[in-house]
Design a protein around this nucleic acid. Sequence first.
RNA 1: CGGGGCGUGGCGCAGCUUGGUAGCGCGGGUGCUUUGGGAGCACUAGGUCGCAGGUUCGAAUCCUGUCGCCCCGACCA
Length: 601
Amino acid sequence: MRVSRLMLVTLRDIPADAEIISHQLLLRGGYIKRVTAGVYAYMPLMWKVIQKITNIVREELNNAGCLETLLPQLHPSDLWKESGRWEGYTAGEGIMFHLKDRQGRELGLGPTHEEVITKIIGEVLNSYKQLPVNLYQIQTKFRDEIRPRFGLMRGREFIMKDAYSFHKNKACLVQSYEKMNDAYEKIFKRCGLHTVKVDADSGAIGGAASQEFMVTANSGEDLILISEDGTYSANQEKAISIPEKAVPLKNGTPTTKETKEQCSIETLCVNNNLHASQIIKVVLFLSILEGGEEIPILVSTRGDQEINEVKLINEISKEKKKAVLNISQITSDKLISQGLNCIPFGYIGPDLSDSFLNNASTWERKFTRFTDHTAANLNHFVCGANKIDLHHFYFNWELLGKLKHKTVDIRKARAGEHSISKSKSNLIEKRGIEVGHIFQLGRKYSEALDSKFTNESGLKEAFWMGCYGIGISRLAQAAIEQSNDKNGIIWPLSIAPFEVVIIIANLKDNFQKDLGEKLYSYLKNKNIDVLLDDREERAGVKFKDADLIGIPIRITVGRNASEDKVELKKRSDIEALVLSSEEVLKRTFEEVSSQKQVLSN
RNA sequence: CGGGGCGUGGCGCAGCUUGGUAGCGCGGGUGCUUUGGGAGCACUAGGUCGCAGGUUCGAAUCCUGUCGCCCCGACCA
């Protein structure tokens, strides 16, 4: 390709609406254009990058025995009602774009394709002998994100590779899951990305085991915890750790003391010479379940701990056997609108009486109570006495009476704590961009959608399923976030829009022009993805553009062209080599093939 | 949805407080000079100041409404 024909339009100024470096560089390099919030056009350079990525993905998945397919984007609501996800995905803060057709039928734009594929496979496959299968597609997905941001990182329309596997039993699912894990590691490596694999929450998709592949970057939206020795890594949503030991509370006679204006853990500590780990903190949540039930939740945890809302949601949903649409903290405003009296916030104990809920208009009239292990393990402690300005001191669980509560893990694991792996190594904290996610779904969807096969015993059985995603467009941007400098993008060679750029420094010099053209056609004939900068621009402009758009290898044909000397420079290097044109060609081949090799091994 | 901010040529911004009919840098075009790290000079094109009302002799500027975008929280590839 010639730059003169490439419609290369680069920006010198940073567009005001781009916050993170990768987004800025994509805009400045003319890779993408925003059309509306969270919706971008992939310009020709970007599309080349995306195609390079999808080619790698295809190669690896085909190698792993997966089948490529293409599923519809318009989904009938019936299908989603059958799986029980329609409400969760469309009501309130749901993320599915949905619409009605001219007959008034409800349709949704696919944010993910479990329903469609599960239904189809159930109709197509009949016998265990046909299993396992693994189908994938590379498709535009639609999610009406509450807040789209950072360019392609969180778009409302984005390209995703999603795959779904179907198995006759769990063992076979686990096997495929491992195989996909390996394929994913190869894919990310070949794309030149450094990823960290972490244990993950399976979220709205549901299912059992799940892991995420994270590109570490400060701009990442996820917090991940990694043990220093590398034996444990997890998304904070999922992470478990060994909590710090509580500071022992000295023995004392249980009493109820006045604690005027000490409604926070902090003031309570300061005024009574306590450590936060000696106090039980109680937080009230309102949880809305699928179907609309509103359930008040009372959570007790140790005062020095924070509540992990994802874990909490999972516990609620386990307890209530229903999907949780949303949780939020209970505030006085909410109490008032329920027609309830004020609850003594700041002085609540784990034994807060259900009678506070007696007159609730729509809420369930009792608390569903969860206690974190850290709190449950305290022998004696300080906690709220459920009256303004009063706390119990030196209390224990027995004194609080018979509480119907479930002891669970709902605390946030934090950096500095010890990992649960044998080594008990320290946890450190990093931010990550999720580029891939693999799930063992189990039979959630196949059961809901009545998608069955006949097993060895001749009985109908729901498929065991796995699902596997890669954010293709996000991956492209994550690669930039991970690899750039003050001059622009530094693409890994395998996904760069071009592998080599030849810059003719001065187009008016015939030696330069001829030699540049010669090298260009030579490389092109050898199937190198080469770009020739043949513009009537000053050399500086061409260098700046080549750096900005991030082409990994640069050949400059300049003032020494008449002596057959040209320059070779890697984008990631500072210094260029001056060599004969023959030598430069030789090294270019070596570089291109070795980089591809290194990345794919 | 809650909180914060912004809409002025393709991009980045000034002007708005104190109304008088739009300006700067980059980019575009033409010409001359220049020619290895976003060149210089000259000329030039390009804007119903997001949109709709209102106040006023007069509105980018003041008022009301509305739409859009960005940032901070719940979502996820």
